[in-house]
Design a protein around this nucleic acid. Structure first.
Length: 290
DNA sequence: AGTTGTCAAGCTAGT
DNA sequence: ACTAGCTTGACAACT
């Protein structure tokens, strides 16, 4: 089992997600920003290696506006060496990597332009992992998308659109249960038809489920990952007290986490702690497990 | 130096 | 009708 946190280390004084306003876009600005992001990503991975946090989610903002029409710069070639180097480091030290395109990516949208933009954005994520030379265990996770008042039709549209995706995307794309629309059961149905691996989100499952226990949910989802895909990925968070349902906690609730770990005995997976204080909670969780 | 409004993009539920 | 929440964070223009 590898433990990790998403996108950003809060104590390093740098971010791998620097960006700029679209209005200040220029090739110079891209070169400068992406280089800083890559440097910080390397620094973050160094920290993670030293601290035994071997699961990491690379943020979508690594190359700002990469899939936007204004973007007319061959970043893949310009930064080839840097991406290769980071990829080598990742492979040498046996990191597990994921990426998570944001909420604007909707594969089953009714509007064809939204679908088109979504695919372009997913493709950018896959390009990052491809440039690093990572194998198929490095994944890009998305939610199913919108319901549009008709879930069966929307699921059907998801599967249809999924089937049309390129090989490069299909080998990396995985789906995740969300907290108000598509439950684990919905994801499992989609898996039956499209064979997409499922990232199990513990917190979302707590918000929206059909009565499956944690143990059964982990068993079901772990079976959706083939040897090529690697170990099941699990996202973990807990409810922020006195906030709207679905908002993530500031810091890990160790009682809740221990409870989850005891329920998961016998199943192997990599776990991502989606908690606001990032590496701090990941370190606490690591201490509790090992 | 610190504060605040705003940022490419979508969807849903709660107010 | 509007906003919070989602992986929310980070820029840029202002005090």
């Amino acid at each position: 089992m590898k433990i990790g946190y998403p996108c950003l280390n809060s104590g390093l004084g740098c971010t791998p997600n620097r960006t700029f306003r679209l209005s200040s876009y220029s090739i110079e600005r891209v070169k400068e920003t992406v280089q800083q992001n890559l440097d910080c990503l390397q620094k973050t991975l160094d920290f993670n290696l030293k601290n035994g946090l071997l699961f990491f989610r690379i943020g979508s903002g690594l190359v700002p506006f990469a899939s936007h029409p204004v973007f007319k710069f061959d970043w893949q070639n310009y930064f080839k060496k840097q991406f290769q180097d980071i990829g080598e480091y990742i492979k040498k030290n046996n990191f597990r990597i994921s990426m998570h395109p944001d909420q604007f990516v909707v594969i089953n949208a009714l509007d064809k332009d939204i679908v088109k933009r979504s695919i372009k954005e997913i493709d950018y994520h896959c390009q990052v992992l491809d440039l690093m030379g990572l194998c198929q265990t490095a994944k890009v996770q998305i939610h199913i998308g919108g319901v549009y008042g008709n879930k069966p039709e929307s699921i059907k549209r998801f599967i249809q659109n999924y089937k049309k995706l390129s090989k490069r995307i299909k080998k990396r794309l995985v789906i995740e249960n969300d907290h108000l629309k598509y439950s684990l059961r919905d994801c499992l149905r989609i898996h039956q038809q499209a064979k997409i691996p499922i990232v199990f989100d513990v917190f979302h499952h707590y918000c929206l489920n059909n009565g499956e226990s944690i143990k059964r949910a982990l068993l079901f989802t772990s079976k959706t990952w083939t040897k090529k895909d690697g170990l099941l990925m699990v996202d973990y968070s807990s409810q922020k007290k006195d906030a709207l349902k679905g908002s993530h906690a500031e810091s890990i609730d160790m009682k809740d986490f221990k409870n989850f770990i005891s329920k998961s005995k016998g199943i192997n997976f990599d776990i991502m702690l989606e908690i606001k204080d990032k590496e701090k909670s990941a370190l606490k969780a690591k201490k509790c497990i090992f």
